[in-house]
Amino acid sequence: MRKKYILNGRRRALRALALITSAPFLALSRRVQASFQAAHHLSNGTFRNNYIGQITKSFSDLMRWRRESPDHPLLSFSLAANDPAFLRNNRKEATLTWLGHATLLLQVGGVNILTDPHFSDRASPFSFVGPRRGTPPGIPLDELPNIDIVLISHNHYDHLDEDSITRLLRRRADTHFCAPLGIRQWLARVGAQHITELDWGDSVRLNNMQLTAAPCQHWSSRAPWDRNRTLWASWVVEKPGFRFLFIGDTGYSQDFSDLGTHYGGFDVVAIPIGAYEPRWFMKQAHINPDEAVKIFQDLRANTAVATHWGTFQLTDEPMDEPPQKLHAALKAAGIDKNIFAVFQHGETRSLARFTETKKTN
């Protein structure tokens, strides 16, 4: 059994192998329910972060933020020229495509992995209100290759979109969904049949790759009454000679230096750079570009792609500000901007060439 690494300095959970399944390539390590729980599990059934506990904001804080928010225009960014036919037929070349916000298509080992799929016009439970999309998806959902695995980071509406999930399932009913604890029921309700729900530190083996749910610092909710009742996670994707980390949403925390120490580095990491203002309200849950660079360093990463910007107007910074601030932070840290890259919406890069930039800079 692999090492458990809940990384707050205390081991408070028991582990055992629970493995017998007829699904091909599936080998799942599950927690054994003990008389006590891991530190990020609370007795009321909710979850907390490793280093700051739960993130809570009062209604008055929310109203203050909305009252003081500037009125920035909704921007639309140009899409990269792409070749969806190549991606649909690709079985050999490892590629990474940014489709917008936190949605990435990772092709590795002939497997198509999609993160936090969002192709709808709004990040909202409603079609007529809520944050509206400024930049269309880099590639329309119907032009994507069939998706083998979907990774879900948490249940916020800009990361877990019902219409996008149901459209993916109409295209391929046997897509396998990996999600943090508590999200299985929601996925099953919208029609997913193959679901693996993991706690931090748990792994599953699918399609000759190991997928591990890892800690990050955030919170969860889809309604006023369910705050922190489902877990949030980043995702490690590993195959021989390659290690990738997807971070959907996070505040800055020691979790990332812990991960860097535990894994000894990553080939590619996806790090959010937007939705960070005002800092008094957003800092615990959303990193800014300066903190994104710190996380890149903490993870001992070779290369990174910037996500979570330029798609929705979610917070108070202008939509085009995050890449500018990222470039300034990279310059101050002496890191080449080609190593921590800002993709165009819809841009595909060969991972072999992308990761080579670390060696040539």
Rank of each mutant, 00 (worst) to 15 (best):
N208T: 02
V293F: 06
R132T: 02
L314D: 06
E238N: 06
K92W: 00
E277K: 14
Q297W: 04
E93Y: 05
T166H: 02
Y252S: 12
D336H: 11
L314M: 12
E162D: 08
L104Y: 12
M1P: 00
Q254K: 07
D161V: 00
A306D: 11
D148E: 05
L231E: 11
A332D: 15
T135M: 07
A301K: 03
L326T: 00
A27K: 05
H41E: 14
L26I: 07
F25A: 08
G9S: 08
L75K: 15
L259A: 05
P215V: 08
N44D: 15
F36W: 12
H176M: 00
S221R: 10
K4E: 06
N112C: 11
W186T: 07
L96Q: 00
E197P: 08
P272T: 08
A23R: 12
I165W: 09
Q54A: 13
R31Q: 10
V305W: 07
Q313D: 14
G248F: 02
N49M: 06
E93G: 07
V150F: 11
A328V: 14
L299A: 04
E291M: 08
L96E: 07
I247W: 06
P125I: 05
S153N: 09
A38T: 09
T97I: 10
A223Y: 08
A85H: 15
F59T: 14
N82G: 15
H159L: 11
N44S: 11
F343C: 03
K331A: 15
R227P: 04
E162K: 10
K4Y: 04
S127R: 06
I6K: 06
E321C: 01
H154F: 07
A292F: 11
K92N: 09
Q210A: 11
L151G: 07
N155K: 08
L168M: 05
R12D: 12
A102Y: 02
S69E: 09
T250S: 15
E93L: 11
K294M: 11
L160W: 09
P145K: 03
N302K: 15
T46M: 05
R91H: 14
Q107L: 06
I147R: 13
R91W: 02
G265F: 09
R133M: 03
Q254Y: 04
R10N: 07
G138S: 04
K294P: 01
N50Q: 10
S220G: 08
A173Q: 14
V150E: 08
Y5K: 01
V32W: 04
R30D: 03
T311S: 15
S78G: 10
Q217W: 01
A214R: 00
N338C: 01
F281E: 01
G251D: 03
F244V: 04
T135R: 03
P180T: 06
R243A: 12
G138Y: 04
G264D: 00
A304R: 01
E143A: 13
L144Y: 07
N208S: 14
Q313R: 11
W65N: 02
Q254G: 05
V32P: 02
W280D: 06
K57R: 15
R31Y: 02
G260Y: 00
D267V: 07
W186N: 05
P322H: 03
